[in-house]
């Protein structure tokens, strides 16, 4: 295993009785990288996280986390990784400070780190507040703060912004990008393709337990950008979409020369449309 490979999945499969939940999953995760597992509900995202973190045993294949086979890991692995699931709970009757301090004791993290993380997630002012009285976004920030309290090398996030309002989701995104800058590797599962495009260095499109595409969001979008088109807004507020043909290129050049173009955008596909092209299904239709 390469020194800088924190996580390696080789030919992972998982079978539940007759149903094959994961088929031949392969991937690697490196420090400072955000890897997105993108797929609809039931695609196998959570199953993958559970296998990697030793909560579930795979049927075949090998999962290595921080150099150790996931079949051989014990509870001590959680001292080096952080896990946030879509329903990670908090102790609602305890204060924000107590919620973090308890876990600081488990991981033997100094008080100064608790204060630092509280500042990072902008909850310092609320440290004495009962956690149950926080807003939904603040609760999710607290969950994230707890997951990174011990400075894990890999952070697993299962639908971290699911059910959050756009403003809070943006706050969470900023936090994740800051953590990435600090060198933390992040394994993110989501069915939100905008989130994946914004955050991920690489994405794996998961469909019916299988990775149907893998690459950076840009690579994937360009790969499926076969019919090049441009969306143009002209001075007269007329919005048109033109395919890339010699005639249309001349037309666009002429409008630009006459300064009649308000704005122009290339119409490469989004991850959503890539997913649709590859699988014939939409991500959110599930």
């Amino acid at each position: 295993m390469e020194q800088n490979v924190l996580l390696q999945l080789s030919h992972i499969s998982k079978r539940y009785k007759t149903e094959l939940a994961l088929k031949d999953i392969n991937m690697e995760l490196h420090p400072g990288e955000i890897l997105g597992f993108l797929g609809p509900s039931g695609a196998g995202k959570t199953t993958t996280i559970k296998i990697i973190t030793g909560q579930l045993r795979q049927t075949s294949g090998e999962a290595k986390i921080l150099g150790t086979d996931s079949a051989n890991i014990d509870a001590s692995i959680y001292e080096r990784i952080g896990v946030v699931s879509d329903n990670s709970g908090i102790y609602e009757k305890m204060t924000v400070w107590q919620n973090l301090n308890m876990f600081a004791k488990i991981w033997r993290v100094p008080r100064t780190r608790v204060e630092e993380v509280l500042r990072q997630v902008d909850l310092s002012e609320h440290s004495k507040k009962q956690a149950g009285k926080l807003s939904k976004g603040q609760k999710q920030r607290l969950v994230l703060a707890r997951a990174v309290l011990h400075k894990p090398r890999i952070l697993f996030l299962d639908e971290p912004t699911s059910g959050l309002d756009p403003t809070t989701a943006v706050e969470i995104h900023k936090m994740l990008l800051d953590l990435k800058e600090e060198g933390m590797a992040i394994f993110l599962t989501t069915h939100n393709m905008e989130e994946a495009t914004k955050l991920c260095d690489n994405v794996a499109l998961l469909y019916q337990g299988e990775i149907v595409e893998f690459g950076s969001p840009q690579e994937l979008c360009l790969k499926y950008n076969q019919d090049k088109r441009y969306q143009i807004l002209l001075d007269d507020r007329k919005e048109i979409i033109l395919e890339q043909t010699p005639e249309n290129i001349r037309k666009i050049a002429e409008w630009m020369e006459k300064d009649q173009v308000q704005c122009i955008h290339s119409c490469e596909p989004t991850l959503e449309s890539v997913f649709l092209q590859v699988t014939g299904k939409t991500l959110n239709a599930w």
Binding site: T53, Q55, D74, A75, S76, I77, Y78, E79, V83, S85, N87, S88, G89, I90, Y91, E92, F103, I106, W107, R146
Partner: peptide, 17 residues
């Protein structure tokens, strides 16, 4: 209560045996 509030799994994924 820990199951209901989803804190049991959090504890078990925090290196508690």
């Amino acid at each position: 209560e820990e199951k209901e509030k989803h804190t049991l799994r959090v504890l078990m994924t925090s290196s508690i045996t």
